[in-house]
Design a binder for these strands. Structure first.
Length: 480
RNA sequence: CGGGGCGUGGCGCAGUCCGGUUAGCGCGCUUGCUUUGGGAGCAAGAGGUCGUAGGUUCGAAUCCUAUCGCCCCGACCA
């Protein structure tokens, strides 16, 4: 741990990320190419994220269920765009129990098909609608280039699948869940995101409309952090999800799906981390405060530990996720660096001097060095720490928002756009034509991230590429 | 699938061009003593089929052939 330091973000952002994921004990490579092992520290973070999302899902009327991992191959062929989109990345099971299967089974890359099949059995009347089901699980996509959390063959996520009696209602659901993701990203992960609609080129295979929340990483690349799709009747027709409406006529249902994955962990790392390591947003951090006791002699140790234990119990009772670092034989300095690598938001140092003065040293992870350190009274420490945690959340969000906003540009010409997207995003009028979108991608590697739902100027403009009339502005940037 | 790089103790590397017998170094690990308010010091230890298979040779980590795997850059994607 002492050697083999983390590269700085400026030196090599990609290496910084790879090393950090390993050194912070978040995940490890698996023996199978492209798969990852999520280690306990990373998984606890995910559990906290799950809790925040799951609460929001329940509040908006959804229930959880579980659908199988294996899906008949033929299901994938029922929706044309869907099969085209996913065919290249399917893993297929051909044998079971030593025998070749009559019909190959696909390891789910997403569950629209099998859930569509089940919904067609369950939905007969308008009284059965809406169906609002979410599933927590993992999916498998045979990715060519992988990176821990950001793109792995197998990843963990939730996928919500809903069916509605009208297009309006399904569209409302699509936007409602996008708002849920936005709220989660901002208020739990301290990640500012931009809500928007995907272009035709970028949308989900089989969707009528895809929406997204896009976040800017510190290397100014975009990361799609959550998606919510409106399917219209596409999947209902493919899987025969029909119901008798109030007029007693048979009608196809309107469906949606929405997902957010462990990729969001990557977003947290790349949004907040610094050259010392991770910086975890307090709301989801596995450990919110770490206690480091400092002593030399046995006599000092017993006095210090008495205070440290008391502080620990008080904060724990106050609902703060706290841990005591009582490892022997390690210097305090080592422990500081160790917990900084892991991104623990608050560190509480307690030494002989603090015992005398009735104080503790509080260090906040988001402000480096001495500036982030303060000496506070042991009395009412729980409320001091709670206050600091919430202050850290606010400051992380503010810092990330300012960074993002400073790197979104409004190029005046196409040439200008080309320069801008090399190191930032462009927010420009776009006519909606695929050719213009493709030209940008070809010239700059930047893609249309989304057409933002908010912050659009009044009135029309001219497409940054072709100069034709354009209704709306789109965001362009290089993406993960 | 194209282009580039790399496989040597747990990790990071040197040695390979120009073969020579005990394969080194740093970190980590184990034990002991001293340490401990920003990555501790000393001492003694443990740990390696040099990716794999074949070949050349008195002798191969080193040369030849084949093969496998990984990483980076491109084409596809949450």
């Amino acid at each position: 741990m002492a050697e083999d330091k983390l590269p700085t973000r400026a030196e090599d952002f990609s290496e910084w990320y790879n090393k950090l994921v390993l050194k912070a004990d978040m995940a490890d490579y698996s023996p199978v190419r492209g798969c990852m092992v999520v280690k306990p520290y990373g998984w606890t973070l995910w559990e906290n994220m799950q809790a925040g999302l799951d609460r929001r899902f329940k509040e908006t009327g959804h229930v959880n269920a579980a659908f199988p991992t294996l899906i008949p191959m033929s299901f994938f062929e029922k929706e044309k765009e869907h099969v085209e989109g996913f065919a290249p990345e399917l893993a297929v099971v051909t044998h079971g129990g030593g025998e070749e299967l009559e019909e190959p089974l696909v390891v789910r890359p997403t569950s629209e098909t099998i859930i569509g099949y089940m919904y067609s059995k369950w939905i007969k009347s308008w009284r059965d609608l809406p169906v609002l089901i979410n599933q927590w699980g993992s999916v498998l996509r045979w990715e060519l280039r992988t990176k821990l959390f950001l793109r792995t063959a197998e990843f963990y996520w939730q996928e919500g699948h809903t069916a509605h009696a009208s297009a309006e209602e399904a569209q409302e659901e699509t936007y409602r869940m996008l708002d849920v993701y936005t709220d989660f990203a901002i208020n739990d992960c301290a990640i500012p995101v931009i809500k928007g609609v995907k272009t035709e080129t970028e949308k989900f295979a089989g969707a009528v409309m895809s929406t997204t929340i896009e976040a800017m990483m510190q290397d100014k690349k975009a990361l799609q952090s959550g998606t919510s799709h409106y399917f219209g009747q596409n999947f209902a027709k493919a899987f025969d999800i029909q119901f008798l409406n109030r007029e007693n006529t048979l009608e196809y249902a309107y469906t949606t799906s929405w997902g957010l994955s462990t990729r969001m962990i990557g977003a947290i790392i790349m949004t907040h981390g610094d050259d010392q390591g991770l910086i975890l947003p307090p709301k989801v951090a596995p450990i919110q405060a770490i206690v480091v006791p400092i002593y030399k002699t046995d006599e000092e140790k017993s006095k210090v530990m008495e205070v440290a234990d008391k502080v620990f119990s008080e904060l724990k009772a106050a609902g703060i996720r706290i841990k005591m670092d009582d490892r022997e034989g390690l210097t305090p300095g080592f422990k500081y660096n160790d917990w900084e690598m892991r991104g623990v938001p608050v560190r509480i140092e307690i030494g002989p001097k603090d015992v005398e003065k009735g104080s503790v040293a509080l260090a906040r992870r988001d402000v480096a060095g001495r500036e982030g350190k303060s000496f506070v009274s042991q009395t009412a420490l729980a409320s001091t720490v709670s206050g600091l945690l919430s202050e850290i959340h606010d400051s992380l969000l503010k810092r990330a928002t300012e960074f993002r906003d400073a790197n979104i540009h409004d190029p005046k010409s196409y040439n200008d756009l080309k320069k801008v997207v090399a190191d930032g995003w462009a927010f420009s009028y776009w006519c909606g034509n695929k050719a213009c979108e493709a030209k940008i991608k070809e010239d700059t590697k930047a893609t249309a991230r989304c057409i933002p739902l908010e912050g659009q100027p009044e009135g029309k403009g001219k497409c940054i590429v072709c100069g034709n009339e354009a209704e709306k502005k789109a965001l362009f940037g290089r993406a993960y």
